[in-house]
């Protein structure tokens, strides 16, 4: 669907906010808390498809998103920061939800860092949600993030790791609480390890993972059934390269989380960057999530 950039503004030096509204009064699909949209972003040589959490309420008349400028940007976030302007019309895929609030939880412990705040901003707009939220950010971004959070005791901002005693926080949660975490991989790793250490069962710990496609060494993907060899460049994902070659592999989240784009590996060794395959599946080296994972060998032969 076509959405128009209705408003744009800087939240912090590295994060830009956008409001995306339907063109010509079209009806916007409802986006439940935790949903994301995939934007088609025009680049000089190709089109980028990036996923962004929707921060507005489910019944809002426009989607609000926040875009962090990625240091070594694959291109999408740089364009949105440097070139996107009010009035631009973008192709946007309907919202998907891979991080809906846990229905069985009576209480929610929400932990985020940096841009990881975005899925929780839609959670906070749910009426009557019982939650405790802790958000970590850089000291210079504190004022900006403060404007996004309610002023009550349920949401706390931390500008230093020292003020957040993770272990004590996780130990004092009631049995009916689920933990949801979103942020940089290193932040989530610490939270997950601490939770496991104090006895949280994996089933009550939920994480949102995006942005795993970081680029890497170029390689060749040999798509056996299609009879095509695709060169995957340093700055593009295997999925992007296949799409650029005119193929239409399955995909959904484009962030290594949903499992939709799993393909069978016939030869070569994948470099797994996803959050979907189990340790056993990774070790078997016979499946790959093409949206974020790459190759350790110069060539990968895939059943597609």
């Amino acid at each position: 669907m076509k959405l128009k950039i209705e408003a744009a503004g800087q939240l912090t030096s590295g994060i830009r906010k956008f409001t995306l509204a339907p063109v010509d009064g079209a009806v916007l699909p409802r986006a439940g808390a935790g949903s994301h949209v995939v934007l088609e972003i025009p680049g000089p040589n190709r089109v980028w498809k990036n996923a962004y959490s929707i921060t507005s309420a489910a019944d809002a008349l426009a989607y609000e998103i926040m875009v962090r400028r990625v240091e070594k940007s694959r291109g999408g976030s740089a364009w949105l920061h440097e070139h996107a302007k009010v009035g631009d019309v973008l192709e946007v895929y309907p919202p998907q939800n891979l991080f809906a609030p846990q229905r069985k939880a009576k209480r929610h412990l929400l932990l985020s860092a940096g841009i990881g705040i975005t899925p929780f901003l839609s959670y906070l707009k749910l009426p009557g949600l019982a939650y405790e939220m802790h958000h970590c950010c850089k000291p210079e971004d504190e004022t900006a993030f403060r404007t996004l959070l309610p002023s009550g005791p349920e949401a706390t901002l931390h500008t230093s790791r020292n003020t957040l005693n993770l272990e004590a926080l996780l130990k004092r949660q009631k049995l009916d609480t689920h933990l949801s975490v979103c942020g940089p991989e290193s932040f989530m790793d610490v939270v997950l390890a601490t939770a496991a250490h104090v006895g949280w069962p994996a089933a009550k710990v939920h994480k949102e993972s995006f942005g795993g496609a970081t680029g890497g060494e170029p390689f060749v993907a040999h798509l056996k059934r299609s009879g095509v060899k695709v060169n995957v460049g340093r700055e593009e994902s295997l999925l992007d390269a296949m799409e650029a070659a005119g193929l239409t592999p399955p995909c959904l989240c484009r962030g290594g989380a949903c499992g939709e784009c799993k393909l069978t590996v016939l030869d070569g060794v994948p470099a797994h960057h996803d959050h979907y395959l189990s340790e056993t599946e990774r070790a078997a080296n016979n499946a790959i999530m093409i949206c974020v994972s790459r190759a350790k060998t110069p060539e990968l032969v895939l059943d597609f």
Binding site: R172, L175, W200, K204
Partner: peptide, 9 residues
């Protein structure tokens, strides 16, 4: 159980 905290088996 209403008074217990996470980590209980």
């Amino acid at each position: 159980l209403g008074r217990e905290t996470a980590g209980l088996r």
